[in-house]
Amino acid sequence: MMLDQDNRQPEEPPPGADELMAMAYADGELGAEEAAAFSARLKGDPALLRLVAEHRALDALARQVGHPEPAEIDWAVLKADPTHRGTTVAGWVLLAASALIGAAIASGSFLLDDTVPFPARALAGAGVLGLALLFSAVLRRRLRAIPLDPYRHVQR
């Protein structure tokens, strides 16, 4: 497709230093000292004040018409944060280890306790074994079904 050179819109001039400062001020991106100095300038410069007001109005408009929450990429960044990942993994490892070891110690000490009658220990052992078998069957079925589940990637 040929462009009609005569009908092209003239390019907007790049923003000046004051406009960039006004944008940063309106977006709350200036440091405390810079913001205080810029506030002082605004008191004596109505044109600059109007520029800040325009950018704040644009920001408010963007919030109204834009996506009301962080984009997927923002969520991904938050989730991939090393501190978040580290504490989460460490938490799960500690929880799983304590649960497994605790269950093994509790089961072992109960099943090997000679003060408990043998039928009671046998019944408890059978119950624990039955639960473990049922859980393993459910877990195995789920693990085999995961690749066949097209909905597991649906996020929202």
Partner: peptide, 16 residues
């Protein structure tokens, strides 16, 4: 805040 874990399960169920 949003509980993504439940958002996801509702979304999965809706699509299915």
């Amino acid at each position: 805040g949003e509980v993504h874990e439940y958002t996801k399960v509702i979304a999965e169920a809706r699509e299915e």
